[in-house]
């Protein structure tokens, strides 16, 4: 279990990380979200022991990263932002170095390296020097380095940045397959990724946690959540009548017109009052009014909206 308590990091007058606390348990894949400069990478650098916190503590199963750095680092795998490596080494030489410094020797070492190369699909670039690799392959070498020793805790700073769609998919599968017996913390700007791999998401803005929950819970915070989009076949001059009638349905909070009426369709997004579901009421109303409905669906609320609302304070 990773336990982060009241973490602060000050750079001069800037409070890059401002009182962050959370716990992550085995089996959790935690996604860090937040605008550029929010403090995601800085937090990760403190978790992995690269930066010393201004105050606060990070521990893994009770071992503190500041007091017991070597013990903690042995159990950590870390892909730093930008996936730095030693450019003049070949992929093979680099992974060999990592395996050695992680304490592997002989057969065990070669087996680990081969295994990692298979898992990350690095076969093609094994003997290529790292500075001639494409951006995506560099990232994959960084990922390989992080998982080579099968760490209990995996910290990945933007692991899929620069990967092609196939590789993104592969890496997400890889993460999901490893998830059960590990603690995984990753940061990303791709919100769909949070859905694909994370079972928990934390949104950080200005160094503070502004939301923490499962992706579904976060989506529920969206204004769009449980709103209903409905298209009714009707002439334009019926619009105001329709609007009035929809607003009168119990539980409806507001209404937004979505399309022009010249197609013969009137489309609205109907928002419920807080924490209500209005699909039953709306369907009943439609039935009573005998409207000709072309399309109707419940919006789930998108992470994008929540992200934007929360991090811009609108």
């Amino acid at each position: 279990m990773v336990n982060i308590k009241n973490l602060y990091k000050e750079f001069g007058s800037l409070m890059a990380v401002d009182d962050i606390s959370f716990q992550v348990n085995q089996g959790e894949v935690l996604g860090f979200l937040g605008p550029n400069g929010a403090g995601k990478s800085t937090t990760m650098k403190m978790i992995t022991g690269f930066l010393t916190p201004t105050s606060g503590s990070v521990s893994i199963d009770g071992d503190d990263i500041v007091n017991d750095p070597i013990k903690v680092k042995q159990r950590l795998g870390y892909l730093p932002e930008g996936a730095p490596a030693y450019p003049d080494m070949t992929t093979m030489a680099f992974l060999d170095f990592i395996a050695q410094i992680r304490g592997f020797k002989g057969r065990d070492k070669s087996r680990r390296i081969d295994d990692t190369i298979q898992r990350i699909n690095l076969d093609k670039v094994v003997y290529q020097s790292i500075d001639t690799l494409s951006k995506g392959f560099k990232r994959r070498v960084g990922l390989a380095q992080a998982i080579l020793h099968d760490p209990d805790v995996l910290i990945l700073d933007e692991p899929t940045d620069g990967l092609d769609p196939n590789q993104k998919h592969e890496v997400r599968n890889l993460i999901q397959n490893m998830a059960k017996e590990k603690v995984i913390i990753l940061s990303t700007h791709i919100l769909e990724e949070v859905h694909a791999v994370c079972n928990r998401a934390i949104i950080i803005a200005n160094g503070k946690i502004v939301a923490d929950g499962t992706p579904t819970e976060l989506e529920a915070k969206s204004d769009n959540h449980n709103s209903i989009t409905i298209s009714v076949r009707a002439a334009a001059d019926q619009a105001s009548e329709l609007r009035k009638s929809l607003l009168a349905v119990s539980g409806v909070y507001k209404l937004e017109a979505l399309s022009a009426a010249d197609s013969g369709l009137l489309t609205y997004q109907v928002f419920p009052e807080a924490n209500r579901s209005i699909i039953a009421e709306i369907s009943q109303h439609i039935h009573q009014q005998n409207w000709e409905v072309e399309e109707m669906f419940v919006n789930k609320g998108r992470l994008d909206d929540v992200f934007r609302t929360i991090t811009t304070g609108v």
């Binding site: 690269f50 730093p80 450019p87 990592i98």
Partner: peptide, 14 residues
């Protein structure tokens, strides 16, 4: 400059 120091110092070395 290259940032590899971050890799180096998060490996189990002092």
């Amino acid at each position: 400059k290259s940032g590899s120091i971050e890799l180096l110092l998060t490996l189990p070395v002092t």
